[in-house]
Simulated assay, not measured.
Amino acid sequence: MALGTAFTLLTASCISCSPFNVEETSSNMQILEPEPAENLIRVGFSQLGSESKWRRANSISIKDALTVDNGFFLQFNNARQTQENQIKAIRGFISQQVDYIAFCPVTEDGWDTVLREAKDADIPVIIVDRQVSADSSLYTTWIGENMRQEGENAGIWLSKKLEELGKSHDKINIIELLGTRGSSSQIGRSIGFDTVCDKHQNWVLLDRDDGDFTTAKGQEIMSGFLEKYDDIDVVVCQNDDMAIGAVQAMQDAGIDLYSDEKPIIISFDASRQGLEMVMQGIIDVDVECNPASGPQLSEVIHEMEQGNQVAKAYFMNEEVFTRDNASRFVDDRSY
């Protein structure tokens, strides 16, 4: 697949950035009515948080795309990882009668009521990155990544790698560090990887636990796995931040990360640091989750402004990185 561009959206606290016509609020502050933005498209955007390098890159991409030069007045809210804050922000956008609402949902469930409120107010809603379980008639379109395909890509790569190593029929013990439980990224990657795993009777899922997409939690969970199991063959981390934490835990446990005897490490996101670790041979494969949805969001809104019908879903282009190709992309990484 072709490599996509990167998202942009910054988080701040209730500061008006007049050069960019951006109103930014944090989750614990009331959303204030911004100064009038004549002839600009007013967009209210709720970002779920800033839990990872990927998320920060996603925020930057959104903000870079929805600029005054592109015809936008952006109100950005950081929800600090809670659905309650996102719902509060969306209701604030509705009360201000913005032209469009977009948000990255922290979880899949629990959005029906507020989405119906936006629909009743005739405000189009665009879901970005993760998906929601709500009735699709309650939002206009979704822009994001094919999380299930990412999980399948990781499983397919592992199958080929084991064949290459002559271990296709060996018992393979696998542990997984999951992302935020209930998020579409966690659900999709788990389903995708499990789809491939179920085809291999010799693959044994020893354990899986929530690492919440953070380095600290990833290190904590991996340390527990290493104390519990002494025969781990494969470590699947559902993002680079957790992989970095898992690697630290392995180092602390005395595992030689440059040895052929180390566990195979699979990660997702393909951040700069992740790709550097792929080039070093520490992470064996990094499945890209492209954060650059800002340009696509801008394009979709402009299409709607012209009265054109838009698709119900837009998938980002994504790549699979190993030592063979990571060096060609690492220098262009903004996150």
Rank of each mutant, 00 (worst) to 15 (best):
I174C: 07
S61I: 04
C237R: 00
E261R: 15
G144F: 09
L275T: 09
M279Q: 15
S27F: 12
K167I: 11
D129W: 05
A249W: 00
K262H: 03
A121I: 14
C197I: 01
S52R: 11
S133I: 13
D198C: 04
R80I: 11
C237L: 03
Q248Y: 05
D69W: 15
I60Y: 07
G182S: 05
H169P: 00
K167E: 13
H200N: 14
G92T: 01
N85T: 06
F45P: 02
I94P: 10
V247W: 04
L10I: 11
Q97H: 11
T25K: 14
L165K: 15
Q280F: 00
S137A: 15
N70I: 02
S293G: 12
P36I: 03
L297N: 02
G49H: 03
G155H: 00
V98L: 04
I174F: 04
M277W: 00
T215R: 14
Y100C: 05
A12Y: 15
R55P: 04
S137C: 10
E319A: 02
D64S: 13
P124C: 02
E152N: 06
A216D: 14
R56W: 10
D194C: 08
N325F: 01
N85V: 04
M279R: 13
K217S: 10
F213Q: 07
N173S: 10
A89W: 00
L297I: 03
G155L: 00
Q273L: 15
T195D: 15
V330Q: 07
S61E: 08
Q238S: 08
E176D: 09
V287L: 02
A311V: 04
V196I: 15
T195W: 03
R272V: 00
G155E: 00
Q131Y: 01
V330N: 07
C237V: 03
D210S: 11
H169T: 08
D331Y: 00
T11F: 10
V287S: 05
E24A: 14
M279W: 06
D286L: 05
P124M: 00
P105E: 02
H302P: 03
R116I: 12
D64Y: 05
L177W: 03
F45S: 05
N317Q: 13
E305K: 13
I90W: 06
Q306P: 03
R148D: 01
G71Q: 06
S259N: 02
R323V: 13
M316D: 09
D207R: 09
F72P: 13
M250Y: 07
P19M: 00
I264K: 08
A270E: 10
T195Y: 07
